[in-house]
Simulated scan of single mutants.
Amino acid sequence: MLLLQALNPALGYYLSTQTKVSPVTRGILINWLIEVHSKFDLMHETLYLTMNLLDRYLSQVPVQKNEMQLIGLTALLLASKYEDYWHPRIKDLISISAETYTREQILGMERIMLKQLKFRLNEATPYVFMLRFLKAAQSNKKLQQLSFYLIELCLVEYEALKFKPSLLCASAIYVARCTLHMAPVWTALLISHTHYNVSQMKDCSDMILRFHKAAKTGKLRVTYDKYMKSERSNVAVLKPLDKLPL
Rank of each mutant, 00 (worst) to 15 (best):
N8K: 01
Y13V: 04
Y14R: 12
L15I: 13
L15M: 08
Q18K: 06
G27K: 10
L29S: 15
L29Q: 14
I30M: 05
H37A: 02
F40K: 08
D41A: 14
L42R: 00
E45M: 13
L47Q: 06
Y48G: 01
L49M: 07
L49Y: 09
L49R: 08
Q60M: 03
Q60H: 05
K65R: 11
N66Y: 14
Q69I: 00
A75R: 06
L78A: 08
A79S: 15
A79I: 04
K81Q: 08
Y85R: 02
Y85C: 05
W86P: 00
I90Q: 03
D92V: 15
A98V: 04
E99R: 10
I106H: 03
L107R: 09
L107T: 14
M109D: 11
E110Q: 03
R111C: 11
R111L: 10
L114T: 10
Q116V: 02
K118Y: 02
K118T: 07
R120S: 14
A124D: 01
P126E: 03
Y127A: 00
K135D: 14
A137H: 03
K142W: 07
L143P: 15
Q145V: 01
E152I: 01
A170W: 07
A172R: 10
Y174S: 04
P184A: 07
I191Q: 05
Y196I: 13
V198M: 08
K202T: 11
L209A: 05
H212I: 00
K216Y: 13
Y224Q: 12
S230A: 13
E231K: 12
E231G: 08
E231A: 06
S233N: 02
N234K: 15
A236V: 07
A236H: 08
V237H: 03
L241D: 11
L244F: 06
L246S: 07
